[in-house]
Nucleic acid binder design. Sequence first.
DNA 1: TTGAAAGCGCTAACAA
DNA 2: TTGTTAGCGCTTTCAA
Lengths: 336, 336
Amino acid sequence: MSKKVVTSADVARMAEVSQSAVSRAFTPGASVAPETRSKIIEAANQLGYRPNALARAMISGRSKLIAMLVAYMDNQFYPYVVELFSRQLQEQGYNVLLFMSDPGQQDRLVQKMMQYQVEGIIMASATLSSSIARECADTGIPVVLFNRYVPSTPASSVTSDNLHGGSLVADFLVRGGHERIAFIAGDEDASTNRDREAGFYKGLAAHGITPWDRVVGGYGFERAAQAARTLFSGEVKPDAVFVANDHMAFAVMDVIREELGLRVPEDVSVVGFDDVPEAAWKGYQLTTVTQRIPDMIEATMSILLEQIEHQAVKKRAAVVGVNMVVRGSARIPSSQ
Amino acid sequence: MSKKVVTSADVARMAEVSQSAVSRAFTPGASVAPETRSKIIEAANQLGYRPNALARAMISGRSKLIAMLVAYMDNQFYPYVVELFSRQLQEQGYNVLLFMSDPGQQDRLVQKMMQYQVEGIIMASATLSSSIARECADTGIPVVLFNRYVPSTPASSVTSDNLHGGSLVADFLVRGGHERIAFIAGDEDASTNRDREAGFYKGLAAHGITPWDRVVGGYGFERAAQAARTLFSGEVKPDAVFVANDHMAFAVMDVIREELGLRVPEDVSVVGFDDVPEAAWKGYQLTTVTQRIPDMIEATMSILLEQIEHQAVKKRAAVVGVNMVVRGSARIPSSQ
DNA sequence: TTGAAAGCGCTAACAA
DNA sequence: TTGTTAGCGCTTTCAA
C-alpha cells in the first residue's frame, strides 16, 4: 500500500543529491543553496519524508527530550504546572517525557529517563536519592527540583518563599484577633511543609503566640479531612487554622461546615497555601498564599536551558516571592 | 572526572565477552549462559552502564514511546486521565511523550510524534485532520481519540455513552417536576457536546417537553459564567439547567448563588457531566453523570496495545456506559 | 551459547 | 556549496 518508512536516502535519490544534502536541508543553520533546498523539500513532501528524531538524537547527542516526574495530579497545582511546562518547552523545541512517580520507584524512573538520553529533568514534588542526583550531574544532565529542595544533592531547585509565606499567614491571623490558632501539616518530609510550618511558627512567635494545636494531613484530601476531625474533636476548638496547602484546605472546610456545622469565617478562619484555581471558586473563597507559578516556571526554564546550553551542571536554588490573597475564608483584620 | 557515557563495548571489554553478548544480557528472552550474564551484569554495574534506549529503538523498531496529546488541564477530568494513562503505560513498559495542543497546531504536533517513532497516539479531547489520521494509519501507528470521535477518520475512539447520559439527565429533571429546563452547551464542535445535547433533547421529547432555552459555554469556566448570566437575564428564569460538563457547572453554580442570589436546588436545579472529583466537594455537591474513566482507559489501552502487538491498525470505537450520581444540586424526584 | 559482521537513519568532519 | 566517509550505540542475522 504505502512504501513504509521513507528515509533521507530515498529523498536524496529522488532529488538527485547526496544523502547529506538532504540532512542539511532539514538542519536550520546548514549551508545549502536555496534551489537545492527547495528541490529537496519538494521531493521530501512528495514522498512524505519525516526525519527520524531518534537517529538525529543519537548522532547529534541532542535528544531534545526533557523528562518530567510528577507525584500526583489530584492537587490542581500540578496539572497547571505540567501544562505550562509542556507548552513552554514545546515552544523552545523540546519535547516532554512524562513520568508519574510511585513512591520508591523514583530512582528507577530516573534511570529510564537517562536511558532515553533526556537533556534535562524536572522533578515536581518528588525528590531523588543523592546517589542518583550524583549520577545525573556526572552525566551532565541538569536536574531541577520544582517546589521541593534537598540541600545535600547536586540538583538545583526552584521553590516559593515558603518561610515568608508561613509568616505572612501568622501575621494575618494574629492581626485578625484569633486566639487559638492551629496548623494542619502536609507531608512532613517535604521541604514545602517544613518551611511553611517554620515560617508560620516564627511569625506567631513574633507576636508572642504559640500554636494552639497541630495535626498532620499529609497533603491528601481524605487524610486532611480526618485531620480536621481530630483537630475539632475536643471541647474547646481552634478559631483559626492554617492548612499547609489549598487542596487540603478544601477538605478541611468541608468538614468544618458540613460535618461540624460551624461557619467559616465567623466561627473559624481557614487559610490555605498555593492559590490553585478552585480557591477562587465561590463555594470556598479561600484566603491563601499565592505561589507565582509562572515565575517559578520561568526560573526553572532558565536554569535548565542555560545548563543544557553550556553543558555544565551546577547547582542553583531559586526562591520565588509570595503574597497573600485575601478572600472570604478568614476573618479580615480591621485595624490598620 | 567521570568517564562520560559507558557503552556496551566498554562492558564487553571488561567482562571479556563480545559486544553482542552484552546486548543479549540486557535483552529479556535472549540466549545467554547464566554465568556469562552475571559476569556481564557485574561489569555493567561496575561501570554504571545504561543501555541507550534510542539506539535500541532505532534498530529494533520499537521505541516504547506512546504520545499523548491533551488540549487543556484546567478541567480536572484531564489531569486524572493523564495520570492514569501514564501509570498504566509505565507499568506496561511504555513511556509517555506528552504534548499540549494549541488549537491549529495539532497536525504539526502529530508530525513531531511520528518523528520520535512513537508506537501509538492517544488524543484526549482533541481531534486531528483526516489526512494526518490517514498518514498515521499508513505508517502503522494506531491512534485513539479519547473522549471524542470523528466518523470520517481511520482513528479509533473511546467515548462514554453521551447520548444515553443526556437522556438520563432529561429524565431526571422531568421527573423532578421542572418546567423550564435549559441547556448550557460546551464546545459545539465537540462530539461529546453534540451527543449529550442530542440525548438530552431526545429524553425531553420523550416526555413531550421542549428545551426552554440554550446558551453556549464552550467548556470554559469564564465563558460558562457568562452563559449563565445570559440565561438568567430574562424576566422569567429557568428552574433547571443541564450543563454540558462539570467544569462549567461550577461556574454556573457560582453565578446562580452568588451573583443572582438564587438557591440551588430550591430555586434552580443544576446538573453536570463527568463527575470530576470536585463534584463531590461539599461546596457544590453536584448531581452529575459519571464518566467511568478507568473503564475508558482500559478500553483505550486494549485497543492500543493490541494494535501495536499485531502491527495492524484498524478502526475501533468503544462506547463506555454511564450512570447518574445524585447529589444535592438538583431537586430529587419524589415519586418512584 | 557465542562472536563477527552488517546495518538502523542520521549528522559531522573532511575534501573537493 | 556539495559529496564522501565515518561512525552514534545498539540489535540481529549468520556461522561457528
